[in-house]
Computed example of a mutant assay.
Amino acid sequence: MPPAPSVDVVCLGESMVTFVPSRPGRLAEVPAFARGIGGAESNVACGLAGAGHGVRWISRVGTDGFGDHLLTEIAAAGVDVSGVQRDPRRPTGIYFRTAGERAVESEPSAEDDGEQPLAEVLYYRAGSAAAAMSPALMPHEQTWSGRILHVTGITPALSPECLALMRELTTRAPGRPLVSFDLNYRVSLWEDPERAPDEGPSVLLDLARGCDLVFVGEDEAEAAWGIRGGAAAIREALPEPDVLVVKQGSAGATAYARGADGADTVTFVPALRVDVVAPVGAGDAFAAGFLSGTLRGLPVAQRLRHGHLMAAAVLTVPGDLCTPPSRAYADRLVTLGDAEWGTLRFGPGWADPARSGSDTAVVEVTDP
Results as ranks from 00 to 15, higher is better:
S22E: 08
R23N: 02
R23K: 13
R26T: 02
E29N: 14
V30S: 03
A40I: 01
N43A: 10
G50K: 02
A51P: 00
G52S: 11
R56K: 03
R60H: 11
G65M: 13
L70Y: 03
A75P: 01
S82P: 03
S82I: 04
P91H: 09
T92C: 00
T92S: 06
E101C: 07
P108W: 03
D112E: 13
E115V: 05
Q116C: 11
S128W: 00
A129E: 03
A129T: 04
S134F: 03
A136K: 12
T143G: 09
S145Y: 10
G146M: 12
R147V: 10
I148G: 02
L149Y: 03
R176A: 14
P201K: 13
V203H: 01
R209I: 09
R209T: 06
F215Y: 11
A223W: 05
W225G: 07
A231R: 05
P239F: 15
E240G: 03
V243K: 13
V245Q: 09
A251T: 08
A251Q: 12
G252K: 03
T265A: 15
L272A: 02
A278P: 00
V280L: 15
F286R: 01
F290E: 00
R296N: 05
V300E: 04
R303H: 01
A311M: 09
L321R: 14
L321F: 08
A328C: 00
A330M: 07
D331S: 12
T343W: 06
T343R: 15
R345E: 14
S358K: 14
D359G: 04
V365E: 14
D367L: 14
P368R: 15
